[in-house]
Simulated assay, not measured.
Amino acid sequence: MNVSLAAEFILLLLLNMAVGAFGFFPSFFVTTLNINLFGLSIGTFLSLSGEIFGAILGFYLYRLGFTKMNPAWRSHRFWLVLENQPANRVFWSVIGLRLIPFVPSGLVTAGASLTPISPWRFAIASTIGKIPAVFLEIAVAYGYTQSLSAEYQYGIVAAVLVISLVVWLLRKRKSGLR
């Protein structure tokens, strides 16, 4: 692997980890990019490792962030119930929620970070649940890369980004008018 390819690999791994850590941006687009640039085998490795290590990173970041916030919001009954779940139940819940497509990964990670589950048990549960979901995403992304030319793929990604930006700006403007 030459230096340029190694740099692309590292940058994509960091991007995959960022998407996995925060989990609010669909990883499908990054998975497609992984496959386009590195092929199916290395693209799969990038997507899977980015999702797994990103979730672990996100767990630590959410846990740290929640300790810095005003604790008054945690007195709501919903958060109290979540915080008092046994670690074993959280473990199985993380696996189950990771298996369900389209459940925002960031919500699962943030919710788990509020519970007594240990980071290593979260990492195991998250990995077990993510493996089938990532392989399903890879299968769809691979089909997408094989059926559409790169120009169409990038056009679709650009359109989704522009639409997301417009929706975000409109919501921000609307909330600012109140």
Results as ranks from 00 to 15, higher is better:
66 F>M: 06
100 I>W: 04
158 A>D: 03
132 P>C: 07
90 V>E: 04
26 P>F: 02
32 T>S: 15
17 M>G: 09
78 F>R: 11
156 I>C: 04
32 T>D: 00
19 V>P: 03
178 R>Q: 14
8 E>S: 13
131 I>F: 02
177 L>N: 12
130 K>R: 04
97 L>F: 13
95 I>S: 06
124 I>T: 13
28 F>P: 03
84 N>V: 01
2 N>K: 13
1 M>D: 03
11 L>Q: 10
8 E>P: 01
68 K>N: 01
95 I>R: 01
48 L>Q: 06
10 I>C: 13
111 G>V: 01
103 V>G: 00
8 E>F: 07
53 F>Y: 12
106 G>Q: 08
160 V>P: 04
119 P>M: 04
167 V>G: 05
76 H>R: 13
18 A>E: 05
82 L>W: 10
142 Y>S: 13
42 I>Q: 07
131 I>H: 01
147 S>Q: 12
88 N>M: 09
149 S>A: 14
23 G>F: 05
101 P>F: 08
124 I>M: 11
98 R>N: 11
2 N>G: 15
135 F>K: 02
60 Y>N: 08
122 F>W: 05
70 N>S: 14
51 E>W: 01
125 A>R: 00
110 A>K: 05
130 K>E: 14
59 F>M: 02
142 Y>W: 13
95 I>G: 06
49 S>D: 06
80 L>D: 06
145 T>D: 11
135 F>C: 04
56 I>M: 12
173 R>P: 05
168 W>S: 09
61 L>G: 06
137 E>P: 07
50 G>H: 01
112 A>T: 04
162 V>K: 03
148 L>V: 11
102 F>C: 05
176 G>P: 01
28 F>V: 08
58 G>I: 04
69 M>T: 14
47 S>W: 03
5 L>M: 12
47 S>T: 11
125 A>N: 05
2 N>T: 06
122 F>H: 08
41 S>N: 10
129 G>I: 06
127 T>R: 01
171 R>Q: 12
42 I>M: 11
122 F>P: 13
12 L>N: 12
79 W>H: 11
52 I>L: 10
1 M>L: 10
161 L>S: 10
16 N>L: 05
10 I>G: 09
25 F>M: 13
64 L>N: 09
33 L>Q: 06
54 G>R: 00
65 G>M: 08
47 S>H: 03
116 P>L: 02
68 K>L: 15
116 P>D: 00
133 A>T: 14
76 H>V: 08
168 W>N: 08
148 L>G: 06
37 L>A: 02
80 L>H: 09
67 T>M: 10
51 E>G: 06
37 L>Y: 08
39 G>H: 02
54 G>T: 00
45 F>A: 15
88 N>S: 15
134 V>I: 15
45 F>C: 09
67 T>D: 11
27 S>P: 05
22 F>C: 03
21 A>S: 13
13 L>W: 11
83 E>V: 04
150 A>G: 05
76 H>M: 12
4 S>Y: 14
152 Y>T: 15
20 G>V: 00
99 L>G: 04
144 Y>Q: 02
65 G>S: 12
109 T>W: 00
173 R>M: 12
